[in-house]
Design a protein around this nucleic acid. Structure first.
Lengths: 190, 190
DNA sequence: CAGGAGTTCTAGCAACGCTAGCGAAGGAGA
DNA sequence: TCTCCTTCGCTAGCGTTGCTAGAACTCCTG
């Protein structure tokens, strides 16, 4: 029976290896470079083993995206709890969100543009996916009435998401980023 | 010489035919269904003619996107000029933006997710791409100081874009859409 | 009517995601 | 220790993709 356990452990290791390789390759050369063949080469197994772990390429990207959500939540939390002054805390959190998207664009792309089949805002949503939103909500809470909390947080999230995606797509001049962030936040701080 | 003109006219017609076919197919079955082969079938020419008009598939999608930007600008303009009351005008314009993205999701996808190589916010930006932003700006102008105008408009745009993309991706519950729009607008109307 | 320029097609390349089915490896029972 | 049998990963290949080289055809010109 111990053999079975070792096998499962090795299997889990290999699964992590796949996700890590996919992420590294994507961050190095973009998602277009992440093909099942190159991935198989990187992990030093043949293509079909990928499919014994994941339903398809999309599922691998979704796994990378889940990692991204966990990291985003952690960074938002760190930023939010850096200060106890509510407006400053919100500003830190928002800046951390923008910074995450700016410095890890490939990860952000997987989280919001590629992985379409990750379910959100429903009971069976994976906790990693809710945590980030939760951090935003806690940063917003001290500044708005509790009745509007959910909706206000969603609007802030949308504002941040819109800023980073439009900037990434070359739709907004990068140099005005800080001013835009300030304008967005000012509307939550009075 | 008239022959040359006729030829160019026919060529232009065929180019429009390609773009129209691409758009129809995409709106009917999604962008994944738009392959060069199916497109060639639809226009009743062989594949290579597509490449005598466009550099590649991306260029065809970009052409569809440009159509989309023109239509979006027209609809925003119609909404904005429906009333002369500034806050109401802004609300109409914002609602029109959201309505456009909601009712023409495939077009919106081409405009903001697919066609990456359309240059924005630079002198050589095509006028169709600037017009939509211009309508937003004129709707915002009466409500904010002229010094903040550009940045405020960009933030509103980002907010709207974030709302529609997060909603489309299943990240926001659709039923709260109107409340979120109201919260976003309230921040521009006081 | 013959020549040549321009246009469109047939055919095919390399790469993609994904899968059927064979062959080897290795634990389980006699 | 030998044999069976399950489990596992591989080779090979299918169908489809975007794109292109070069042949074949059309049609205006002299």
């Amino acid at each position: 029976m111990a053999i079975r356990e070792r096998r499962e452990r090795e299997r889990l290791d290999r699964e992590r290896l796949i996700v890590a390789a996919a992420r590294e390759l994507a961050e190095a050369e973009g998602w277009d470079a992440v093909t099942t063949r190159r991935l198989a080469d990187l992990i030093e197994y043949s293509q079909p083993v990928l499919y014994s772990h994941f339903k398809g390429k999309d599922a691998i990207m979704a796994a990378v995206a889940v990692e991204g959500f966990a990291e985003l939540a952690a960074e938002l939390r760190a930023a939010r709890t850096k200060t106890s002054n509510p407006p400053a805390s919100l500003a830190e959190t928002a800046a951390a969100y923008a910074h995450f998207a700016e410095t890890r664009p490939i990860l952000y792309e997987a989280m919001f543009t590629k992985a379409v089949d990750l379910t959100f805002a429903s009971p069976e949503t994976r906790p990693e996916l809710q945590a980030g939103f939760g951090e935003l909500r806690e940063a917003v809470r001290p500044l708005v009435g509790d009745d509007d909390l959910e909706v206000s947080t969603e609007v802030l999230w949308a504002g941040l998401h819109g800023l980073v995606t439009l900037t990434r797509g070359g739709r907004l001049r990068r140099e005005d980023h800080d001013r835009r962030l300030a304008v967005l936040l000012r509307r939550f701080s009075d």
